[in-house]
């Protein structure tokens, strides 16, 4: 896949940081407003997809290998699993909200709701990695190539 014109490249360069920031905002405020790990993760994956489309796959490919989308996917989902098991070990219930037990926080504040923001972050990493991996496998990689 070839890159697009200079205009597209420049504009996507300008857009990507704000989209990325919005994605992080949505993930962090997942327990307060609509959105959360999945929606934010899709936004973050979207800005990588935008970069690949604008600059062409040839230029991004070597970076892609470094980025290792599937690795971050596994890492995110493993973090989520770890939080769930932490509840089992510490609070004797699977998915037990151990932080809320110690410090519940006030409803509506950013630092509240215990492990839910942490879970959102894990899901965000997972979804961003997974969606980008799906995009690369479907759009960029030719037959027989490995991720």
């Amino acid at each position: 896949m070839k890159g697009m014109t200079l205009i597209v490249k420049q504009i996507s360069q300008l857009m990507v940081p704000s989209i990325f920031l919005l994605g992080i905002y949505v993930i962090l405020h997942g327990h307060l407003t609509p959105g959360g790990g999945f929606a934010g993760g899709i936004l973050i994956a979207g800005c990588f997809v935008l970069l690949v489309l604008a600059y062409g796959s040839d230029e991004v490919k070597s970076e892609v290998r470094k980025w290792r989308a599937s690795f971050s996917e596994s890492l995110g989902i493993f973090m989520f699993w770890f939080l769930a098991v932490l509840g089992l070990v510490q609070g004797s219930y699977f998915f037990y909200n151990i932080i809320a037990k110690i410090n519940p926080g006030h409803p509506g504040q950013l630092f509240s709701a215990g492990i839910i923001p942490l879970c959102n972050m894990a899901i965000g990493i997972e979804v961003a990695g997974a969606l980008f991996a799906i995009f690369i496998t479907l759009a960029v990689l030719k037959a027989g190539e490995k991720l």
Binding site: F71, S74, L75, F78, W81, V85, L88, F94
Partner: peptide, 21 residues
């Protein structure tokens, strides 16, 4: 009976760990 979630948690955890390892 804390072992019940382990039936799901152990295979899933191992499944997520294998791609990392």
């Amino acid at each position: 009976m804390n072992v019940l979630p382990l039936f799901v948690a152990i295979p899933l955890g191992a499944a997520f760990l294998t791609p990392i390892l």
